[in-house]
């Protein structure tokens, strides 16, 4: 079966940000779906009202940023319950979180912090992911992080760690192509090899975003600021990813210097056009 005969996945989506609450209330954005950060919608009032309308208009995905699934001290039950309450209330099409930790000693650091990829870490993350899936009674997707350092003892390559996590817990993978590229440049690793090492049946969503190019002591460091258009190298990874994971919908994230909604919608349309082209080339190559 060629990719073009498949049921097409949703058109690309965009992240819902508070800066666009007014615009999305005024008219439904012409995108396939929208994703929210769970932690921004755990209270009541205006944000929940906006979310309720968006949920009526479009498929919604809940993306957690604060569960600290890589935390050695386990999950915060109160926070887990609040996220579960939100998921129960809006019945999203997807739920996802990160391969990272953000809580230690009960303190929340507001960052997606890196893990050493060891058997011990795999046990910790798998335990937390299973607890999350049990609480939500559904499968979640786990996203690869962008990182700025590696530990000296980290014997498992990140894609192998994610594959093992998926196998052990039954979770899926949210593949962020910008994160792959950012980490690959920051650590001198192979981004294409990363995409190819991810098991094709595990990927349930793709993320795209822009990054900031910084230089430190003559070394290029990419900062994952979600503050610009997707760069060409990441588009190339995306083309490879849509051929390898044709059923996974794509999301555009933009969190810094957020442009008007129209610009984000245009970026999502660009992702749709590139996806279609990538699959055509795939068919041509197969013929």
């Amino acid at each position: 079966m060629t990719a073009s005969l498949r049921e097409p996945p949703l058109a690309a989506g965009i992240g819902l940000r508070a800066a666009h609450h007014g615009a999305v209330m005024a008219s439904r954005p012409s995108v396939g779906w929208m994703e929210i950060h769970a932690e921004n919608y755990l209270g009541g009032g205006a944000p929940r009202r906006v979310l309720a309308q968006v949920r009526r208009d479009l498929p919604v995905s809940v993306h957690g940023v604060g569960l600290s699934l890589g935390g050695a001290e386990g999950l915060d039950q109160a926070h887990l319950d609040r996220v579960a309450g939100l998921v129960a209330a809006i019945e999203p099409m997807l739920v996802s979180e990160h391969l990272a930790w953000s809580v230690a000693g009960g303190v929340y650091h507001n960052d997606l912090l890196p893990l050493p990829y060891t058997e011990e870490s795999l046990g910790v993350v798998a335990g937390n992911v299973s607890r999350l899936q049990d609480r939500l009674r559904r499968r979640v997707l786990i996203e690869n992080p962008s990182t700025y350092l590696r530990f000296d003892h980290s014997p498992i390559p990140e894609p192998a760690f994610l594959a093992a996590l998926a196998q052990r817990t039954g979770c899926g993978i949210l593949l962020d192509l910008n994160n792959i590229y950012v980490s690959a440049v920051n650590h001198g690793l192979d981004a294409v090899g990363y995409v190819d090492a991810i098991p094709a049946d595990a990927v349930g969503e793709l993320h795209l975003a822009g990054h900031h190019v910084a230089h430190e002591d003559g070394v290029t460091i990419l900062i994952d600021d979600h503050g610009s258009s997707v760069c060409d190298a990441v588009w190339e990874l995306h083309a490879r990813a849509v051929r390898r994971f044709p059923d996974a919908p794509t999301l555009i994230e933009w969190d810094t210097a957020i442009p008007p909604l129209d610009r984000l919608v245009a970026e999502a349309k660009a992702a749709d056009a590139r996806r279609a082209r990538a699959l055509e080339h795939d068919d041509a190559a197969a013929a």
């Binding site: 935390g71 050695a72 001290e73 930790w101 230690a104 000693g105 303190v107 650091h109 960052d111 912090l113 893990l115 050493p116 060891t118 011990e120 870490s121 910790v124 530990f151 003892h153």
Partner: peptide, 17 residues
């Protein structure tokens, strides 16, 4: 290799001054 809990405690200390 120290346990993950210790690594995260040390990382946290560096982040908070």
């Amino acid at each position: 290799m120290p346990p993950l809990r210790e690594i995260q405690r040390d990382f946290s200390q560096a982040l908070l001054g």
